[in-house]
Design a protein around this nucleic acid. Structure first.
Length: 287
DNA sequence: AAACCGTGGCC
DNA sequence: TGGCCAAGGTT
């Protein structure tokens, strides 16, 4: 018995879905996988141009695995969270070595790849291969928090989020994939975080939050740390310098950074992550 | 399991 | 202006 929510989402999605590259028929599991890496905590509009350049350069996992990690980190450009570039390269090597160069379909096999967690594994299995799994991202969690639980905002991510989504899925694989995508889409364009567009929401008259008068609920989400002046900002500056220069003497890397200790901390943590390497007193991207 | 990890746009 | 937010994952 399909949920009422699914029954509303399916026709709405057929009508309103955005035309995004990874939704094109035949986009392929590798394309979907790369898109999901890039979309982790990064807005759609910033991903699209970089995704297309990436897939043009590396049309298969094996092609990426044949290049040095440095190339992946450089191609990642300013997408942010550059560890994702390194992890995507590692995943490509793992796919080549453990799966004959074919992106796995099995959720547990996907979860075993570097940089892939609960969301990305199920997104690939569902959207690239059409299998039936609950796919839960931040948009879906917000839609469920409001429409099902009557809360203004979701709590911190939890494993029971998967059960909440499972309860909304129709039986058939294809319909289940559509409902997963539709819940994400609704959260992305209608049931947005700050000012939800309830006037155009297909769930308006069955939404628990709306029916309870849109109560304010305690916001249990953790606040994001300030970026200005942070170690992350220093790491970003170091990496940008090395992306642009290839290799630099260690003292020359952001040599004018105001906080000397912070600069050294950034370099050490980047070395520790494998995002940079040291050789003969110079730093460079990982070969 | 709480903290950490980039970057840019928006109001 | 500055805090919020963005298709998360790892340790």
């Amino acid at each position: 018995m399909p949920s009422e929510i699914a029954a509303r989402l399916i026709p709405w999605y057929a009508r309103e879905q955005r035309d995004l590259p990874w939704r094109a028929p035949g986009f392929g599991a590798w394309g979907v996988l790369v898109s999901e890496f890039m979309l982790q905590q990064t807005p759609v509009n910033r991903v699209i141009p970089l995704l297309e350049a990436w897939l043009e350069r590396w049309p298969t996992p094996t092609a990426l695995a044949a290049d040095a990690p440095a190339e992946a980190v450089r191609q990642w450009a300013n997408l942010g969270y550059p560890r994702r570039a390194l992890w995507l390269h590692r995943a490509a090597v793992e796919i080549r070595d453990r799966h004959d160069g074919v992106v796995p379909r099995d959720v547990d096999a996907l979860l075993a790849l570097t940089g892939i967690g609960d969301y990305t594994a199920r997104a690939v299995a569902t959207f690239a291969y059409g299998d039936r799994h609950p796919v839960v991202d931040t948009n879906t969690r917000r839609v469920i928090a409001r429409a099902v639980h009557g809360r203004a905002q979701p709590g911190p991510p939890h494993r029971r989020d998967l059960d909440d989504m499972e309860a909304l899925l129709p039986e058939g694989d294809d319909a289940a994939a559509i409902v997963n995508a539709a819940a994400m889409e609704l959260g992305a364009v209608v049931c947005v975080a700050r000012t939800p567009r309830c006037d155009v929401c297909p769930l308006l008259d069955i939404c628990a939050w709306v029916s309870e008068g849109r109560p304010e609920t305690p916001d249990l989400r953790r606040r994001q740390a300030k970026y200005e002046g942070s170690d992350r900002q220093a790491r970003g500056a170091v990496l940008r310098a090395l992306r642009e220069s290839g290799s630099l003497p260690q003292q020359a890397v952001i040599g004018d950074w105001p906080d000397r200790l912070q600069r050294d901390r950034a370099i050490l943590s980047l070395l520790d992550d494998g995002l940079i390497e040291a050789e003969d007193g110079a730093l460079h991207l990982p070969r």
